[in-house]
């Protein structure tokens, strides 16, 4: 069983590394410029599926742009939005959750009420609402997803801090004269890391799907930037003639999200002491 958990972490981690490599080294890996239009090579099927021009591995779109190159470049947005949102939402959620759990009383009540209000909106809908009013843009999408995602961290961290602060080593630190913020940062924060890592991993998967969903709905990044979601949305009109326009970007989203979920699953199993005992 334990070996299987390591396998999950390894396989998921490899997919995530693959995404990072694609995103960072896109100009070196992509065979073509993702924006370059070749009208003479419109809607070419993938090379291996009997495409006349064997030059395009995954075919071309309605403007003759290479699908593979666009998918490789599209990973940049997924990676950028995914990582930034997870980090920013994590910071906000952890700080609020930590402070609420540690200080309790009024602060805790206030934070809990705000959390409850944010949780009252289905996650993607809040992001859709924010994007509808903020307008398209990479910064806006990160902001919208961050505002809808910080709550999960806040709840988990608050719960952890509530139980951690009663532990003996915290009392000992306090007896030695440590200040509250020192205790929070030095003693409590490191102990919440395993749970935060797991939350962050799953959040990354959700954020990547959400970004793709928003782009698919036309509420994501501006149309000139290639993203997996917008590629799918554009490809829909050519579905019967050129199904590869929708199949491959969707597969890219699926494999990425699957990998990250696998990693999250593996990490959770590894960090969960209850499971280890079994």
């Amino acid at each position: 069983m334990r070996r299987f958990r390591y396998f999950k972490v390894f396989a998921g981690g490899m997919i995530l590394v693959g995404l990072i490599v694609c995103g960072v080294a896109a100009p070196m890996i992509a065979p073509y410029d993702p924006q370059e239009q070749r009208l003479e090579a419109r809607l070419q099927p993938p090379a291996w599926a009997g495409g006349a021009a064997a030059r395009y591995w995954l075919g071309t779109d309605n403007l003759g742009r290479d699908i593979l190159s666009r998918i490789i470049y599209g990973s940049r947005i997924s990676l950028l939005v995914g990582a930034t949102t997870v980090i920013l939402a994590g910071l906000l959620g952890c700080i609020l959750g930590g402070v609420a759990g540690y200080f309790g009383k009024g602060v805790d009540e206030l934070v809990s009420k705000v959390t409850e209000i944010f949780l009252a909106f289905p996650f993607l809908l809040l992001a859709i609402a924010l994007m509808a009013f903020l307008g398209q843009g990479v910064v806006n999408i990160i902001l919208a997803l961050m505002m809808s995602r910080w709550v999960q961290y806040c709840r988990v961290v608050r719960g952890e801090v509530l139980s951690l602060k009663e532990r003996d080593f915290i009392t000992a630190a306090r007896a030695l004269g440590a200040k509250d913020f020192y205790i929070l940062l030095r003693h409590i924060a490191p102990n919440t890391l395993p749970s935060v890592t797991v939350v962050a991993t799953f959040a990354m998967a959700i954020v990547i799907i959400s970004e793709a969903s928003l782009s698919f709905l036309g509420l994501g990044v501006p149309a000139y930037i290639p993203t997996w979601g917008s590629m799918l949305s554009e490809g829909r009109s050519y579905m019967t003639r050129a199904p590869w326009l929708t199949i491959f970007p969707g597969l890219a989203i699926f494999i990425t999200v699957f990998g990250i979920n696998l990693l999250g699953d593996g990490l959770r199993d590894l960090f969960d002491p209850k499971l280890q005992r079994q």
Binding site: A212, F216, M239, T246, I247, G250, F254
Partner: peptide, 11 residues
């Protein structure tokens, strides 16, 4: 959980 539902719908 990993399948984007808009893609599943299109497929």
């Amino acid at each position: 959980v990993s399948l984007p539902n808009f893609w599943l719908g299109i497929m």
